[in-house]
Computed example of a mutant assay.
Amino acid sequence: MATDYDAPRKTEEEQKEDSIEELKARRNDKTSGKVDEDEAEAAESFELPGADLSHEELSVEVKPKQEDEFTCMSCFLVHHRSQLADEKTMTCRDCA
């Protein structure tokens, strides 16, 4: 147990009395462990900066498959031809 050397010194008996009194006070205070706030209601009140994306539009440019690329039939990622492990199954080195 850590010792605070700057704190006033108490005897063991005083320390036991203090801790028992604190425990009794906590036990009598029934509302100390309860939270009155509804999580869903609290989450609605928080507004993150930049969270309103309703006016944004997603645009993606799809490029055609290149001559030196292949799609792995196991992980479905597009790799360079140098990563091809098995031409029959069209799998990459990571999946082979």
Rank of each mutant, 00 (worst) to 15 (best):
T3W: 04
D38H: 08
Q83Y: 15
A40N: 15
E17A: 15
T71S: 10
E13A: 11
L58D: 03
D6I: 08
V62E: 13
K88L: 04
S54Y: 04
H80S: 06
E14F: 07
L23T: 07
K65F: 05
R81D: 05
A43D: 10
S54H: 03
A42W: 03
E44L: 08
H79P: 00
E39G: 02
D86Q: 05
E56F: 14
E13H: 10
S32E: 06
K65N: 03
H79R: 08
V78A: 12
E12Y: 07
K88D: 14
D94C: 06
E47L: 04
K10S: 04
K24W: 00
K88I: 01
D68W: 15
R81K: 13
D18S: 06
C95D: 01
H55T: 15
E57V: 09
E41M: 14
E13C: 04
S54M: 02
T71R: 13
E87I: 03
K16C: 02
D94N: 12
E17W: 10
A96R: 05
P64T: 11
V62M: 14
S82V: 04
K63Y: 03
E61L: 07
E12C: 09
R93E: 14
K30G: 10
H79I: 00
T89Q: 04
C75D: 00
C92Y: 01
E57F: 00
S59E: 07
P8I: 05
A43Y: 00
L53C: 11
E67F: 10
E17Y: 13
T89E: 09
K88H: 10
E39K: 14
E14I: 01
E61W: 03
E57D: 03
E21Y: 11
E17T: 07
D38A: 14
G33Y: 00
R9S: 12
L48S: 07
C92R: 00
T3H: 05
E57M: 03
E14T: 07
T91G: 00
F76G: 02
M73R: 14
A42S: 09
S45Q: 12
A25W: 03
S59H: 04
T3Q: 07
A85I: 00
V78E: 11
L53H: 12
D94W: 12
H79C: 03
K34R: 13
V35L: 05
E21K: 15
F76L: 14
